[in-house]
């Protein structure tokens, strides 16, 4: 019984949140890695692009709610999602046309791209704060829990409860669908393959008649979809706050590099690796050992490797370890 309790404890506090957070990071990291693979720069404006997409989704959600439209048990935000995606695509393409295209044609160095992405970061940051403000916004409606801890306890008779929020399930399902579609597109369709070819060898892609403009356009469209979906899922699960979205950029970058830059599958795994490390290393295992150890050996401290405040340190540590041992990422980079 104690063994079962300890397993449920870990499931409730590490596995379920890990899968949710990992999915959100994975979607974000795939977006960053696609930009890296095709457009060849680290986009520092990505966190704010996520915030922008989520903001549109929230505004549409509010509008729908004011009209009395809801999605039943599911959050209204899911209906608003396509509108958010469209706006984000428009914004991405706008910035590509007005900013990035110029530097692409000039074949500027990656650092210049990073710097102009900072400019866009400032602009998006301002736009989001001017329109919706800097504060925390909770826009989750619909049914909150699929399984409450108390219900689980009654059901199983165990001491430990297992709570599953509906946002967690929605996150997982949406991530699976999005990633399945994306990987099908990249590996099975002609356009997807041409995108990988372009990322792999730009000159040869041109010699094969692949149109770079179309690839770039497509990349922004996919990236905007991923950014909006990831941002909305994160916002539904936790809450929306522009500054948090900027900060999320750091673990997302770490996941991208860990997975091998330009490699979407790597980014996917990287997201989960970062998420699970973050959660598992900041969890206090005291209760867990209480179940497994005889009473005399019960731990006196929290048995927490590092305090929750230091979650950046975990991303950083993993990043540095990977860069030292496998500079091209765990999953051998550049395969978009």
């Amino acid at each position: 019984m104690d063994f079962l309790n300890s397993i449920i404890l870990l499931t409730n506090f590490i596995i379920v949140p890990g899968i949710t957070y990992g999915s959100q990071l994975a979607l974000g990291a795939i977006g960053v890695t696609l930009i890296y693979g095709v457009l060849r720069f680290a986009n520092f404006a990505y966190g704010d692009l996520m915030a922008f997409g989520t903001m549109i989704v929230i505004l549409v959600t509010w509008y729908l709610q004011s009209k009395g439209i809801s999605f039943g048990l599911l959050p209204t935000a899911l209906i608003a999602l396509p509108v958010g995606i469209l706006f984000t695509i428009a914004v991405s393409l706008f910035f590509d046309k007005t900013v990035f295209e110029y530097y692409r044609e000039k074949k500027s160095n990656p650092v210049t791209f990073i710097v102009v992405s900072l400019g866009i970061m400032f602009v998006l940051n301002a736009v989001v704060r001017i329109i919706i403000g800097p504060n925390d916004i909770n826009f989750m409606d619909g049914h909150k829990f699929i399984m409450k801890a108390r219900e689980f306890k009654q059901l199983t008779g165990l001491n430990e409860g297992l709570a599953i929020k509906s946002t967690q399930v929605i996150t997982l399902i949406t991530t699976i669908i999005t990633c399945a579609l994306l990987f099908y597109f990249l590996n099975k369709t002609k356009t997807g393959k041409s995108m990988r070819a372009y990322s792999d060898n730009e000159d040869l892609a041109l010699l094969s008649g692949i149109d770079p403009k179309r690839i770039v356009l497509l990349t922004w469209v996919i990236v905007s979809i991923l950014a909006t979906v990831a941002g909305t899922l994160y916002g539904l699960d936790k809450s929306f706050k522009p500054f948090t979205y900027f900060n999320n950029l750091l673990p997302i970058f770490a996941a991208t590099i860990v997975g091998g830059i330009g490699n979407p599958l790597g980014a996917f795994y990287g997201g989960f690796l970062i998420a699970f490390s973050e959660i598992a290393l900041t969890y206090a295992y005291k209760k867990f050992f209480k179940y497994l150890m005889p009473e005399s050996l019960e731990p006196s401290t929290l048995i927490q490797f590092i305090s929750t405040d230091y979650k950046f340190a975990i991303s950083f540590a993993i990043l540095i370890i990977v860069l030292i041992f496998r500079p091209n990422g765990i999953f051998k980079g550049k395969v978009i």
Binding site: F122, L124, A126
Partner: peptide, 8 residues
């Protein structure tokens, strides 16, 4: 927040 816009 307009200052961010101007900076950008």
């Amino acid at each position: 927040y307009f200052r961010y816009l101007m900076m950008g």
